[in-house]
């Protein structure tokens, strides 16, 4: 029983990471039909930012320093997203395949750039001792960092849903996902929403990268790319463009992975996720909460 609680909470921590990475991907795709393959680079950039802040600001108390690191990682991700959208993606407006190719090139260059600067060996993160300690929940000793990641992810989920449901920008984004040409026909400037969505996706991925560095105990340039593939699976299972679908699928994918790894054979978890993907596609090609393809 106690190991079940531990696995579940570890899985939910991983689900939090997947959600942070996949929700931006899903929104960007839902609104602009751009599959952002540079998204993993935002994740890695967030991780390196956190690593840098934790190393550089050693006079600041460690708890506060971690909050600064999270904010900085989010900021770096958001700026990278906004700049890429404004300067590059925008110029290929309407050419979906070319936009994908562009983000592939960017992702490739960004990963190599980080490799050139920080080397391909993982960098270890200085983190508060509290992260490594455990809290007893229902008889299981759960590492605090899993709970932290889960907590931050839930905060971002609530924040994102509030933003989408309660603000004018969110309304335009939701309308744009639903029917972009109608929004344009109503005289609303969707292009500003494109920048916002890219920045938002970058922010979520950047924060995810900082937390991922905690979860995986370090950061290397290719970590983002590895996680991006699971994020893709999450997005497809959840249904493209649906944030609740992404959240649901994150939990489903992460728990499947962790349970299979721990109860069956270690290493089979990732493959079982692909089987899960194939199964969902056979039954519901549009994903769990996605709209049927037009």
């Amino acid at each position: 029983m106690s190991s079940f609680v531990l696995f579940t909470l570890t899985g939910l921590g991983l689900a939090g990471l997947y959600f942070l990475l996949a929700s931006g991907l899903s929104l960007i795709f839902g609104l602009m039909s751009v599959l952002n393959l540079a998204h993993g680079a935002f994740f890695a950039a967030g991780g390196y930012t956190a690593w840098f802040v934790m190393d550089a600001l050693d006079s600041v108390p460690i708890g506060l320093r971690f909050i600064v690191a999270l904010l900085a990682a989010g900021l770096v991700g958001a700026s990278a997203g906004a700049v890429i959208e404004r300067v590059l993606v925008r110029r290929l407006y309407g050419q979906h395949v070319e936009q994908i190719l562009l983000t592939i090139g960017l992702g490739m260059a960004a990963v190599a750039l980080m490799g050139g600067w920080f080397s391909y060996d993982p960098r270890l993160l200085t983190q508060p001792d509290w992260f490594g300690d455990t809290t007893e929940i229902a008889g299981a000793n759960v590492p605090n960092n899993r709970l932290l990641i889960l907590g931050v992810a839930i905060l971002f989920f609530i924040g994102l849903m509030t933003f989408l449901k309660r603000t004018r920008h969110g309304l335009i984004i939701r309308a744009g996902v639903e029917n972009p040409s109608m929004v344009r026909a109503l005289g609303i400037d969707v292009s500003r929403s494109f920048t916002i969505v890219f920045a938002l996706g970058g922010l979520l991925a950047g924060v995810g990268g900082a937390l991922g560095t905690v979860y995986f105990n370090g950061i290397s340039p290719s970590l983002g790319t590895t996680q991006l593939i699971f994020a893709f699976i999450v997005v497809v299972i959840g249904g493209l463009g649906s944030i609740p679908g992404t959240a649901l699928a994150s939990v489903l994918v992460a728990l499947t992975q962790i349970y299979v790894n721990n109860y069956l054979t270690s290493g089979l978890g990732s493959i079982s996720v692909v089987v899960l993907l194939a199964g969902v596609l056979l039954v519901r090609p549009q994903g769990l909460l996605g709209k049927a393809a037009p």
Binding site: L101, G105, L106, M108, A109, V111, L113, G115
Partner: peptide, 23 residues
């Protein structure tokens, strides 16, 4: 010099330029 000695950095940048200007 670090990034420039990474083949994938050079290829990635080259690729981005190509996609933008010679699709």
């Amino acid at each position: 010099s670090g990034p420039l000695s990474e083949p994938l950095f050079v290829l990635g940048v080259l690729f981005v330029i190509l996609v933008m200007y010679a699709p």
